Amino acid sequence: MPEKIKITSSHWVLVIALLVSGFACYLLVEPYINSIVMAFIISMLMFPLHEKLDNLMPTHKNISSLLSCIILTFIIVIPLLFVFAAIVQQGSKFSQNVYQWVTHGGIQTLFNHPLVVKGLALANQYLPFDGINPQQIAQKIAQFATSFGTNLVGISAKILGDATNFIMSFFLMLFVLFFLLRDRDTIIANIRHILPLSRSQEDRLLDEIESVSKSAVMGSFLTAIAQGIAGGIGMWLAGFPGLFWGTMMGFASFIPVVGTALIWIPTATYLFLTGDTTWAIFLAVWSVAVVGSIDNLLRPFLMQGSAGMNTLMIFFSLLGGIQLFGLIGLIYGPLIFAIAIVLFNIYEEEFHNFLDNQDNS
Rank of each mutant, 00 (worst) to 15 (best):
Q323R: 13
D130R: 15
F272M: 13
K6Y: 06
S213P: 04
I336L: 15
G321N: 06
L302S: 05
K140G: 07
L343S: 02
A85N: 12
D295Q: 02
L27I: 11
P128L: 02
L172G: 09
T223M: 09
M46G: 15
G161E: 14
L67Q: 00
V88E: 09
F74H: 04
F351R: 14
V29Q: 09
S306L: 10
N360Y: 14
A224G: 02
F240L: 15
L197N: 01
N165R: 14
I225V: 12
Q125A: 10
M38C: 06
P134L: 05
L318N: 15
I187M: 06
A86Q: 10
V291K: 03
G131K: 14
P48C: 09
P134E: 04
G259S: 03
P196S: 01
F84G: 02
F272I: 03
S147I: 09
I341K: 06
L271E: 05
H50A: 02
Y126G: 00
L302Y: 08
S10N: 14
I187Q: 02
V98W: 15
Q96P: 05
D185C: 03
F178H: 13
T247V: 15
F166Q: 14
L66N: 01
F351C: 05
I132M: 08
K4H: 11
H113Q: 11
G105Y: 04
G232P: 10
I78Q: 05
T269C: 04
M248P: 00
L283N: 00
L67M: 08
L160C: 11
S198P: 01
D130Q: 15
V285C: 02
Y26G: 04
K93L: 15
G259W: 05
W12C: 11
F315L: 05
S213R: 06
M46T: 13
L271R: 03
H104E: 13
D356V: 12
R199W: 13
F354N: 13
G275P: 05
I107W: 03
Q108V: 12
C69F: 05
I71F: 07
N124K: 03
A138G: 11
Q90T: 07
K93H: 11
